Computed example of a mutant assay.
Amino acid sequence: MKLEHVNITVPNPKASAAILCELFGWHVRWEGEAKDNGFTVHVGDDESYLALYAPNKRLEPTGNTYVRIGGMNHIGVVVADLDAVEAKVKAAGYTPHSHGDYEPGIRFYFDGPDDIEFEVVSYA
């Protein structure tokens, strides 16, 4: 078994997808109308993806997800070249933080599009 996708609510799926494609080398797998007259973009690779969903209504911030049952705390992305991705993250205007070098890999985090936290890790 494998994880296929995670569905996340964002204000502008196309804009978020464009940033994630640039940072991680992903591609848009599908986009179109979605639940409750919303719009979704599926962005990722050939094996898994993020479903970036925007409903046709006003969005409200979630607050601190680390203290909420069912809160999504961060999305982990495995990359081959951690330094190259960190350079892209910085060039896109995001600030890497919480660097770590512990088993099973090296990593950093950043608060990306829509203030979603990403963990970028390399096992190389």
Rank of each mutant, 00 (worst) to 15 (best):
I116P: 05
E103M: 14
D111M: 07
A91Y: 08
R107V: 00
S16H: 06
D111V: 10
V77W: 02
I116L: 15
A17D: 03
V89R: 13
V43Q: 02
Y109L: 04
P104Y: 03
H5S: 07
V89D: 04
Y102H: 15
K2W: 13
A92H: 14
Y123W: 15
I69Y: 12
N64L: 13
M72C: 12
S48C: 12
I116W: 02
K57W: 05
V89A: 04
V6N: 11
T62M: 11
G105R: 14
G44W: 09
G38H: 09
N37F: 09
I116T: 10
T62F: 11
E47Y: 08
G100T: 08
V79H: 08
L82S: 05
P113A: 14
H99T: 01
D114M: 06
F110K: 11
A87Y: 08
I75D: 03
G70S: 06
R58W: 01
L50N: 03
C21W: 04
V121P: 03
E22S: 13
N56E: 12
V43K: 01
G100K: 14
N73P: 00
H99R: 15
N12L: 02
R58V: 05
G25N: 07
H74I: 01
F118Y: 14
M72L: 15
K88I: 05
G105W: 13
P11Y: 01
Y109K: 12
V6A: 14
A18L: 05
P96F: 05
N64M: 11
V28Q: 12
R58Y: 01
N56R: 14
G112A: 07
N12K: 14
D46N: 15
M1T: 09
F24D: 02
F110W: 09
R58T: 14
S48F: 04
A92Q: 12
E31M: 09
P61V: 10
I8R: 08
L82F: 09
G32M: 13
P104A: 03
L59A: 05
H42E: 04
H74T: 00
I69G: 02
T95P: 04
I75F: 13
P104W: 07
H5P: 03
H42K: 09
L59M: 12
F108G: 00
R68G: 01
H27P: 00
E119C: 04
P61G: 08
V41W: 05
P13L: 12
I19W: 00
L82W: 10
N12I: 02
V28K: 13
A54I: 06
L20G: 01
E47T: 11
A54D: 01
K88R: 15
K35M: 13
N37I: 00
S16K: 01
L23D: 02
E33F: 08
H27R: 13
A18S: 10
V41H: 07
N64E: 10
G105C: 10
V6I: 15
C21F: 04
E31S: 08
W26K: 07
E119A: 02
T9Y: 04
G100Y: 11
Y102V: 04
A18G: 03
E86A: 10
G70V: 07
A15G: 02
L52K: 03
P55W: 04
K57I: 08
K14W: 00
Y66C: 01
P96W: 05
